[in-house]
Design a protein around this nucleic acid. Sequence first.
DNA 1: TTGACAGAAA
DNA 2: TTTCTGTCAA
Lengths: 264, 264
Amino acid sequence: MLELRLVQGSLLKKVLEAIKDLVNDANFDCSSTGFSLQAMDSSHVALVALLLRSEGFEHYRCDRNISMGMNLNNMSKMLKCSGNDDIITIKADDGSDTVTFMFESPTQDKISDFEMKLMDIDSEHLGIPEAEYHAIVRMPSAEFAKICKDLASIGDTVVISVTKEGVKFSTRGDIGTANIVVRQNTTVDKPEEATIVEMNEPVSLTFALRYMNSFTKATPLSNTVTISLSSELPVVVEYKIAEMGYIRFYLAPKIEEDEDETKP
Amino acid sequence: MLELRLVQGSLLKKVLEAIKDLVNDANFDCSSTGFSLQAMDSSHVALVALLLRSEGFEHYRCDRNISMGMNLNNMSKMLKCSGNDDIITIKADDGSDTVTFMFESPTQDKISDFEMKLMDIDSEHLGIPEAEYHAIVRMPSAEFAKICKDLASIGDTVVISVTKEGVKFSTRGDIGTANIVVRQNTTVDKPEEATIVEMNEPVSLTFALRYMNSFTKATPLSNTVTISLSSELPVVVEYKIAEMGYIRFYLAPKIEEDEDETKP
DNA sequence: TTGACAGAAA
DNA sequence: TTTCTGTCAA
């Protein structure tokens, strides 16, 4: 028996908006700790890890560990039927091959339940080792989203370089080149507007903008984003989910190619 | 000679937005009583009835009863050329095969007139008997529109069931099932937010969501919608048009099929 | 008042 | 699928 009651149901809608373009089907894992997901994107290049801790739910009952395979597009369709202020309850009976999403309007005048078939999904749960990163950048998530979107109109890849001066995002395309430098800045009115660069060692890594722009779908979940970089390691793009957990995206850097890669 | 001056011209634009997807060509009937229309949808399944009473017009002159056949798409195109605050005047000379729409901007700085050819349309004016309904539900039109839209993302048909507890909208599709229960609620701040269920007898009827979602195009015309249900009778979905009349949609229920309809 | 976003139409 | 428009928020 599983029953998870989430007062701020819009959180779950946003989570699905953030991952459904990247991953088609995935197992949600429930344990007494929380509600989590780990999945590779459909082209097996990026990895998503989601955690919603049990403490973040108004009511959390999970009698035994259970893994529920869902089609994220269908799940998202159903969640879209909830109002933004609705309370969402996820229910599953033991041994059932369905999951039920219940939506309660704030006034309790409208109560909906949506039942969805579960699927069997081979899950390869990777252990992700905690790593030391050469550089960790925390910045406003909207600013990071705009940078990735802007650069994608010029080129396909972004070079993220961290020095003690700040972070540089660069790209190059047919129509020209672009460099966006963001300096560390902690003297702001609100802490979520700060840009903080923690650097042990300078790094410069190249990533596919296509994936970065998928990751920024999570922007509505948090005002800030944390980007952790080490040479030879996948970058981690993390959005904290208030009081509940996080959504993390992992993406391996591209091996830097020669300058004249465009002239084969 | 016909001359109808409507100060709130946007009303007429909204009316056409509401019916032009359902009906291609229709006769507008003018009499001293008002401006009305009755037409079957192009697949002869649903019926639209519109009434704009003469009292709702600033000036209403209709010397003799006249029926004007119009292509609603073309009429809508012309009305889209009017500003939302414009005063619209509909004119037709006796014996003329055209109708003229005149638009006056609120400041009178811009006056446009659009002339459109009339068409001959065989009209089968059905007498719609006043019926006693088993149940009449009045609810916010936006809420009804969201329910129909949400359910259409899951299934093709909706079962509307009225009991003394309230109204239930249900559907079933490939990805799962959905039930939305709306309870009677009269203790709201604004009367247009109330949901009122008048029930003489419980009813449960099935309708094609495709048509329901056409009907909800009329949502901008009214904050509330009234749904009148009787077994064996077409449902009536009515939007009142402030101070002027109504637009009503009629749709026959589907005959409930067997549970195993999906296994032919 | 303007821009961004999402939904609708082509 | 892409574009456009309407609406919402800043």
